[in-house]
Structures are given as C-alpha cells and as structure tokens.
C-alpha cells in the first residue's frame, strides 16, 4: 500500500476507529460516580480510560499523517466531520450527567458488550493491516480488549439470567441497540478502497463474525433475534449524526475552546 495513493481511505478508516472509541469513552466517562456499585465504578472507569487511550493512539496516527494536532482533531471538528457510528453517540439516559441523569445500565451493558465484540473482531483484522502503524496499534489494544470483553460478558450473563425485571430491561436494551448497531459494522462509503488497499478485511466477513459471536452469547442465555442489526438513523461513517453528538461535542470541548489564545492546558 502506498500512503500517497491511499491517503483518503486510510484516514477515513482511522477517523472511524478514533471517533468510535472517543465518543464511546466519553459516554462511558459520564457514568463516573453513578455506576450501580462502587466496585463497578472503579472497574468501568479503567475500561473508559483504556478506550480513551486507544482513541488517543488513533488521533496521533492521524496527526502523523498530517491531519493536525490530536487535541484539535478530537475537540474542534464539527459534527459532520465525525465518523463514529450513531449508536455510540446516543445519550446514556434521559437526563444530563450532572442533573437527573436517569442513566440506563441495561442499555450501557448491551452497547458496551456489542461494541467490544465488534471492536475485538476489527482489531484482529487490523493486526494484518497493510499500514504498519495501524497493525502495531491494534496489537497493543488487543491485550486490553480481552478484559473489557470479559467484563461485559459477565454483566450480560448475570443480568440476563437473574430477575424478571433485569431480563425485561436487558431485552428492551438489546432491541434498542440492535436497530442502530449496523452503524458500527459498516466501513462507510470508502469501504471497497479500504479493503483493496489491504487496510482491513471486507465488511461482510467482519459482520458475519460479529453475528456468529453474538448468536453464541444469545444461545447461552436462551435468547434469539430474527433480523440483522440495522442502521435506521443513518450512517455516521458518512457524517450523518444526531443532536446527541452535537451536545456531546459541545460538552467535551467547552474548556478547550473557551480561550482561543491559550497554547496549553
């Protein structure tokens, strides 16, 4: 692969990876101090730190490719420039992180589980990427990914097989996440070129692996779903996003943009 002739698909792919992790870690970080118990608060925060760390690694690669400063890429781009999947930008609950958050733990467990299953599959594929910095980053991330996935699998099994209320809430969350999880599984408009440049395997293969693995998890708890994951609210890889992302970006960049003269924070 030559960087020059494949620059667009290369950066597009890394923006997807970076923005997925960044927004996902942001949503996770909003839970800090509010998790179901103190032990989970500590564990969940480690996962969010790892994920934010992964986003940072990707933004640095983009920076090395001449895209600009990592902090600018994460804090100054407009909503339409973000490439994350829509399901990842969705708020954790009806309220705000400081005011009546009303966060939904079932939604969080499902979104994190599905995301981490998909992310692991993606990272396994990236290990063979023709772009060495990406392959290298994927190898590092995979060592942490194992534990993240284990964490959410335990939550999934426990909540799916305990009380009736927990099962109901979890099933509702599965249906909710499923409707938009297709957005995580797509590689967007530049997919073909990404694949022909050897950056990553093709979408269909990755998707099939995801469905297989989720099916296996569902089987363990006697659950099944008929259709495939959808993308009903649009394709984030194409810059399509919701108000939730607009709001999140405003929050996470509030301080960074507050003093344009500032050279350091």
């Amino acid at each position: 692969m030559s960087i020059e002739s494949n620059k667009q698909e290369l950066t597009e792919l890394i923006y997807q990876l970076a923005d997925d992790d960044f927004i996902h870690a942001h949503r996770g970080s909003e839970w800090l101090g509010l998790a179901p118990h103190i032990e989970e608060d500590v564990a969940f925060s480690s996962i969010n730190q790892d994920t934010m760390g992964h986003a940072t690694m990707y933004y640095r690669i983009l920076s090395e490719l001449g895209e600009g400063k990592a902090d600018d890429l994460s804090h100054l781009r407009k909503k339409e420039q973000f490439r994350n999947a829509i399901i990842l930008e969705e708020k954790n609950g009806t309220g705000e992180y400081l005011d009546s958050p009303n966060y939904d733990w079932a939604f969080t467990v499902i979104r994190h589980l599905f995301y981490d299953v998909a992310k692991k599959i993606r990272l396994e594929s990236l290990k063979q990427s023709s772009y060495e910095p990406l392959a290298d980053a994927a190898r590092k991330m995979l060592t942490e990914q194992y534990y993240h996935l284990l964490h959410w699998k335990i939550w999934f099994k426990q909540l799916m097989t305990s009380t009736e209320e927990a099962r109901d809430r979890m099933e509702t969350a599965i249906k909710r996440v499923w409707k938009d999880f297709g957005g995580v599984l797509t590689l967007g408009p530049h997919a073909e070129k990404m694949v022909s440049a050897g950056l990553i395997e093709d979408e269909a293969a990755l998707r099939e692996r995801f469905i297989d693995q989720i099916q296996e998890l569902f089987n363990e708890v006697n659950y099944s779903i008929d259709n495939e994951p959808l993308m009903i609210r649009g394709d984030g890889r194409n810059g399509e996003h919701t108000e939730d992302l607009e709001h999140a970006l405003k929050t996470l960049s509030e301080v960074y943009v507050s003093d344009p003269q500032a050279t350091g924070w």
Partner: peptide, 11 residues
C-alpha cells in the same frame, strides 16, 4: 471529567 480540555487531561 467529560469537559477536561485535552486528551491527556481527560485521561
């Protein structure tokens, strides 16, 4: 936490 100005400060 979500508002920390840079990636480094957020972490």
């Amino acid at each position: 936490v979500p508002k920390a100005p840079t990636l480094h400060r957020k972490l």
